[in-house]
């Protein structure tokens, strides 16, 4: 549980670093900017490589400065106000896509619900998380190439969220599971036939191991 309790601390640290903390009222009522990451952001991989581009993308801690800070509040913690898990900072974790690779969930064409035949895979992922309480989980949603692009990006997210919802009913804590959709941008296999399509319609589990 170490990592879980350390997240709020990291969050506060990030806010302080960004110099955007409305802390005057005390920690209870810290006003943060909705949508801001809970921890320091990833590296700015553009700086230096692309002059003139990305100047406005700083370290992520000062996202949408005045515009949204007036109107939006988010609770400090690992769950945002709607109950989605906060995104862990990619710098703070090591991604392991192999541990649960055999539990990749497959989906029916154009469907986002977890089939009953695939539930055991989600249950295996839940059991794994129970045994590894320090680890977090990222669920990737993917689609075959037959939908249109942004439609698939939304469908992939819906698939990842369906898996996440099932994980939560199995007792996995909401703050341990984040989702990401790749739509049809990251097929598991190339090819343009049903065999390729069925392998590409998937929800993959990426275990996030906190760095010490």
């Amino acid at each position: 549980m170490k990592i879980l309790t350390s997240f709020p601390v990291l969050f506060l640290a990030a806010l302080l670093a960004a110099g955007a903390v409305g802390c005057k009222k005390g920690p209870k009522n810290v006003t943060t900017i909705e949508g801001r990451r809970t921890t320091a952001p990833g590296p700015d991989n553009m700086s230096g490589t692309n002059p003139g581009v990305g100047k406005g993308v700083n370290n992520g801690g000062t996202l949408t400065d005045d515009g949204s800070s007036k109107s939006n509040n988010v609770k400090i913690g690992n769950i945002d106000e709607e109950g989605l898990g906060k995104r862990p900072n990619p710098d703070d974790v090591t991604e392991d896509s192999l541990i649960l690779a055999s539990q990749t969930v497959s989906f029916e064409y154009d469907k986002s619900s977890v089939k009953s035949s695939e539930r055991s895979k989600v249950e295996a992922a839940a059991a794994y998380l129970k045994n590894e309480p320090r680890y977090l989980l990222k669920v990737e949603g993917h689609c075959d190439e037959r939908g249109t692009e942004e439609y698939n990006r939304a469908l992939g997210e819906r698939r990842a969220l369906s898996i996440r919802e099932y994980l939560l009913t199995l007792g996995v804590s909401a703050d341990r599971v984040t989702t990401i959709s790749f739509g049809k941008d990251r097929p598991a296999v190339p090819g343009h036939d049903e065999s390729a399509y069925s392998q590409n319609r998937r929800g993959a589990f990426i275990v996030l191991k906190p760095k010490q």
Partner: peptide
Amino acid sequence: ATGERKPVARYSGLNTS
């Protein structure tokens, strides 16, 4: 013109379209 880039939406989950 300036290359300036600013985040518009970076919430948990999907931000697109």
